[in-house]
Design a protein around this nucleic acid. Structure first.
Lengths: 232, 232
DNA sequence: CGCCAATGGCTCGCAGACATACCTTTGGAG
DNA sequence: CTCCAAAGGTATGTCTGCGAGCCATTGGCG
């Protein structure tokens, strides 16, 4: 019997209860900037349908986000639940094994996504989307950088045309962002990142998978060593 | 708002109910050969703990496997639930989008895993494990090939030292295996695969990430084009 | 031979999540 | 000005899954 493979296969079937999972997803959408501050979340009924949970559970999750000041709800038609500007922080407490695990998975997923995206023939809408995200990230302030950065990386994953891969990248980024939130973000890092983003997107749009992978790998290695340095 | 990233983030929070998820996991362990025919599954109590579900749910899942002749249970000390030799088949019914999705994710994960494994300094136990799995796969009969093949690929994922990556590979393989089960497996494919496995493992043991990735990519492209040919 | 530890087999009450229905608020359309 | 569609807010009965405990069976150990 393969002892180690069992650890992967016999891991818990559900990350938490329906409520916790739902909170986690909504947090992801907000922290990754998929729904920006000031924007509206889908309606409770729509979220319930799409997330596959009851509306009661969605409401409990939203309530918990309200109490932590992530969102505000307004009633009536054209009402809804809106994302606030202030985004609270989370606490650290990670172990080395977690860091290796998270960074290994991220590198595999994101370098693979970059290569895969570069290998496809992208539609004009997709090409424009990538350029827009790149522009947004490059002009972002320090405060909003992490969110714009995530949106760019998610756009790259989407450009692979694989929903599973996009979902995996989103989850992976959440894990890594939790780690990144515990270390400072400095202007020089930001400038460096922007230059790397430029190279990645150019390579993808040029249809050069090797260059895209290479550029993404260098980009990720930067934050990876930063993390290892700060946290170990 | 990023419309497409939402599809990934607002996907259902739970794949199915606890029972279905549990059946799925046990099926994975069996179909991927992590628990071989004749071997015993962990006890119900242990599975309940590790899978994070109640023992009642584990028992219902096992019951369903029994009814489909995957396993048999024996009571008493040194009893347990044992995997049968006969492994029933599943029905097809896939769409093109699913295939692209599954194959894209698999390629990203497995080429990444091969490269990552080759980039680590492996312990002697890990090196031996890889050689054993390679030997097992190369001497496998047609009937047992898929299982031995999966065990080898899982061993490669494990060699990255990332539990998340291993879990992702396991899930990805299950999806692709479902597709592979619908097309014939021929002797020439098998011989070809074995040669490729040889190259992959050699590259990993030699610590050559570029060669390992390249070899894995070629290996996967083989079955990928086979699949696209048969199913589209 | 008898004990007993570890396994599968079984039952019952509770808590979480669900489906459904209805109420309240709001602002644009007519 | 009225209406009403669409959003959040609330209540209730049902059911799945869980926890915990106990029973039944088996084979090795003393």
């Amino acid at each position: 019997m393969m002892e180690h493979a069992q650890e992967a296969l016999f891991r818990p079937v559900r990350a938490g209860n329906a409520f916790e999972e739902t909170v986690e997803r909504l947090m992801q959408a907000i922290r990754l900037g998929v729904v920006a501050p000031g924007e509206r979340l889908p309606s409770e009924r729509e979220l319930a349908t799409r997330l596959g949970v009851s509306r009661v559970t969605v409401r409990e999750a939203i309530r918990s986000l309200q109490e932590n000041n992530y969102v505000e709800s307004r009633r009536g038609r054209y009402g809804g639940t809106f994302v606030n500007d202030v985004i609270p922080k989370s606490a650290p407490g990670k172990e080395f094994g977690d860091i290796h695990d998270a960074l290994t998975l991220r590198k595999v997923l994101e370098t693979g996504a970059a290569e895969s995206a570069a290998g496809r023939s992208l539609g004009s809408a997709e090409r424009r989307g990538l350029r827009v995200r790149l522009e947004e990230a490059s002009t972002a302030s320090l405060a909003e950088y992490r969110r714009k950065d995530s949106r760019l990386h998610l756009a790259i994953a989407e450009a692979t045309g694989s929903a599973s891969l996009t979902a995996a990248v989103a989850e992976s980024r959440m894990r890594v962002n939790e780690l990144l939130d515990t270390i400072p973000l400095l202007e020089p890092n930001l400038a460096h990142s922007n230059a790397q983003h430029e190279r990645i997107i150019t390579s993808i749009l040029d249809g050069d998978p090797v260059a895209a992978r290479q550029a993404m790998a260098e980009h990720l290695d930067g934050t990876a060593s930063l993390l290892r340095g700060f946290l170990v």
